[in-house]
Amino acid sequence: MLTFVISFATLVCTAAARPSLNNLALPVENKPEEVRSAAIKRLLGVFGMEDTPAVHGHKEPPQYMLDLYNTVADVNGLTRDPDLLEGNTVRSFFDKLRSEQVEFRFNLSTVARTEKILTAELHLFKLWPQATMAFNRLHFCQVSVYQVLSSSKHNHTQEKKLLSSRLTPIHSTGWEVFTITHAVRSWMVNESSNLGLHVVVRSLGGSRVNMKVIHFASGRNHHLSKQPMLVLFTDDGRQSTSLQDSGETTVTSSHPEAPLSDPPSRRTRSLDHSEEDRASMTCQHLPLYVDFEEIGWSGWIVSPRGYNAYHCKGSCPFPLGQNMKPTNHATVQSIINALRLIKSIETPCCVPDKLFSINLLYFDDDENVVLKQYNDMVAGSCGCH
Results as ranks from 00 to 15, higher is better:
276 E>Q: 11
309 A>Q: 02
362 Y>R: 09
99 S>G: 12
370 V>M: 08
227 Q>S: 10
289 Y>Q: 03
226 K>N: 11
358 I>R: 09
267 R>S: 08
366 D>E: 11
284 Q>N: 12
274 S>F: 06
280 S>M: 11
54 A>N: 08
137 R>T: 13
77 G>S: 10
290 V>D: 00
242 S>T: 11
300 W>N: 05
373 Q>N: 15
304 P>R: 10
229 M>S: 05
143 V>P: 02
102 V>W: 09
192 S>K: 09
26 L>S: 03
212 K>I: 03
376 D>S: 13
124 L>A: 11
161 K>N: 13
316 C>H: 01
52 T>Y: 02
192 S>D: 11
2 L>G: 01
316 C>V: 12
58 H>Q: 04
83 D>F: 09
319 P>A: 07
80 R>Q: 04
118 L>G: 15
3 T>I: 05
242 S>D: 10
46 V>K: 02
155 N>V: 07
46 V>C: 05
173 T>Y: 05
158 Q>P: 04
69 Y>E: 06
338 A>N: 08
227 Q>Y: 14
369 V>T: 15
42 R>V: 03
148 V>P: 06
200 V>T: 12
312 C>Q: 03
238 R>Q: 10
233 F>W: 14
309 A>M: 07
332 V>M: 11
139 H>W: 06
101 Q>V: 14
199 V>T: 09
110 T>S: 10
24 L>R: 01
114 T>D: 05
82 P>V: 09
218 S>P: 05
162 L>S: 12
383 G>E: 01
378 V>M: 02
245 D>L: 12
249 T>S: 09
224 L>P: 04
162 L>E: 15
254 S>K: 03
45 G>T: 03
2 L>I: 03
71 T>E: 14
21 L>Y: 00
329 H>A: 15
83 D>R: 14
246 S>W: 02
339 L>A: 07
376 D>V: 07
66 L>W: 00
212 K>Y: 06
213 V>F: 03
385 H>T: 15
343 K>V: 09
